[in-house]
Design a protein around this nucleic acid. Structure first.
Lengths: 347, 347
DNA sequence: ATGAAAGCGCTAACAA
DNA sequence: TTGTTAGCGCTTTCAT
């Protein structure tokens, strides 16, 4: 489709002025023909577009941004690029953005709220908008930022901001019911980071579900949400009387699995484990993890489409979708099973 | 587009002109004070910098790029964002770039060489340079591109181009020796994509090592380098007489593991499996995978530093490091073991 | 050491 | 419908 670039030496890039000269029109007409084809006579438009194609013209996005204010790039802020949870998200946003001819800037905030604001502030002029996954900022700070740059948050609900939230709490209910149906009545929640919004939501949902079903729930943690925290989390759980646990995320759960095997605790015979997210690896770890499958790639797509529709809204008052909740469902694999017949050997 | 004074809470961004007025100097002096502090009187410089700080000035990178040609962003081209192999790479480049105050643009070429050229061509003016991981382009195409934009390739060695290559072949030799020491003498290589440079290099290394040790080697494939190809690859291997296999990458190997278990083939008792890369998951799959550990994050760091040093080279003739080879080592886990006593039950 | 002035490539008023 | 004219914010000669 696109002919290969002029393989020759280094030539000065083609500008609209070149096209203008070649076609005997003003530069502004070229600009219009290329960006607002409707506003230009069909014949000249064709001539101009043909010339542009012939010269292999590529618009200079810097120059365009300077006048129009639109940069054609949006940023995805993640708290840690290496967290597999984001893989699906990155893929989702990437696809949606590419389809809309936007470029994606990937920013790693390293779990730091300060870095998050700083980057957002510094880059605000180079971005048309940003998607914040797992923001570590306060509601107030986020609200302030919204004045600087169009923002969509993921898994974070702030009044007046556009957001996509994955309804893990509903999934937690399913998980608790699943465990209850297997005979478990003493369940523990393994907490993620204390300042994580989803973490609080999950724990709350678990308490609610448990009280409705008359189960005992406790919690251990908080733990950093990575594999390396697995051993500590596993030991903490073994120090309770629980026969099942729900873990903040799969990464942590997978870390626990290894430790449990080391300590001779069989999953699920001695202890049932439920994760969250259904990340890469949840299906092939040992044993494969029962977990809450989150439509994370979908979340990325939706976030982008919300952001873009806001950007193209005629006026600031034109209604845009404010918040979308995506459902979650329980995927049962091999890490959950019937409650042990006797009492589990507790530490 | 006249700057409306403070309408609706959004403030007009601070420019060097604002700073110039405030400090009673020319805009050009402000520019110098900020970018070339050496060329400005110490006192005025201090005054200007203080003012910039006070006004919370953030340079407009678009405007800067327009005149200087430098955009402050480099792109990382990957063939598939969802391939876990890239996670470490993304992290490595991200860190190095952030340290140098560069932004990272992430581009997914979807395994398509055409998309790769097109994106590279389209974005060449918005980038200071690019890092190409797993390029699908021909040597010639790459060489041409080098004239358009500074490039560093990863795992791809082209004359005259800067590159970082991970010395998997050396690792393959270790793997073959490891298998030989376990008594295997009939080994098969599971091929990745036909147009993949590392794939060819690995197969070549394997043949060499095998002939040196007097082993029989064969190959099956090519297969797309993802988990979904695992079953087909596993079946193909079982259709040979091999007692061990070396797989193009871990993703494929992990996909095979599941299928092998389904078919009742025990790993490593019936078949030994060696992967490549040591990606996320290789340590907790079932069984944990013996694999070639690649310093992939390091590769990202090195690629960035090579690119940046080239960008800051005084002249086109100043020598820059052309090529770096990073070592690989074999990590032995549980997927390799002694050759089966009798003959493996082959399909 | 500093200032004046000329753009970079493009878009968007305003004219015609 | 099209052309003319201003810039956008910054860097970079070239004077001073």
């Amino acid at each position: 489709m696109a002919p290969p670039p002029d393989a020759g030496g280094r030539t000065r890039p083609v500008t609209i002025t070149d096209i203008a000269k070649l076609t005997n029109v003003a530069a502004s007409t070229v600009s219009r023909a290329l960006n607002n084809p409707g506003r230009v006579n069909a014949v000249t438009r064709e001539r101009i577009q043909a010339a542009a194609r012939a010269l292999n013209y590529v618009p200079n996005s810097q120059a365009r941004a300077l006048t129009s204010g639109r940069t054609g790039t949006i940023a995805l802020f993640v708290s840690d690029v290496t967290n597999p949870f984001y893989f699906g998200l990155i893929r989702g946003t990437q696809h949606a953005l590419k389809a809309a001819s936007y470029a994606q800037l990937l920013i790693d905030t390293e779990n730091s709220g300060e870095l998050e604001v700083e980057m957002l502030h510094k880059m605000r002029r180079s971005l048309d908008g940003a998607i914040l996954a797992a923001s570590r900022l306060s509601d107030q700070a986020l609200a302030n930022l919204t004045d600087e740059i169009p923002l969509v948050t993921i898994n974070r609900n702030v009044r007046g901001m556009q957001s996509v939230v994955i309804d893990t709490p509903a999934g937690i209910r399913q998980a608790i019911e699943h465990l209850a149906s297997l005979g478990h009545h003493d369940i523990v929640y393994v907490c993620g980071p204390a300042n994580s919004w989803p973490n609080a939501a999950r724990w709350q949902a678990m308490r609610n579900a448990a009280s409705r079903l008359g189960l005992t729930v406790g919690r251990v943690g908080p733990f950093p949400p990575g594999q390396p925290s697995g051993p500590a989390a596993a030991d903490a759980v073994l120090n309770t009387t629980a026969t099942a646990c729900v873990v903040f995320n799969d990464l942590l759960a997978i870390g626990m699995l290894t430790r449990l095997r080391e300590r001779g605790v069989r999953v699920p015979e001695d202890l049932s484990v439920v994760g969250c997210d259904d990340i890469f690896g949840a299906d092939f770890c040992n044993p494969p993890l029962t977990t809450l499958t989150a439509p994370i790639e979908r979340a990325g797509l939706v976030a982008v489409s919300m952001l873009l529709s806001r950007l193209s809204a005629r006026s600031a008052t034109e209604p845009v979708r404010q918040s979308v909740v995506l459902p979650t469902y329980l995927t049962v694999r091999d890490s959950t099973g019937p409650v042990p017949a006797g009492t589990r050997l507790a530490g």
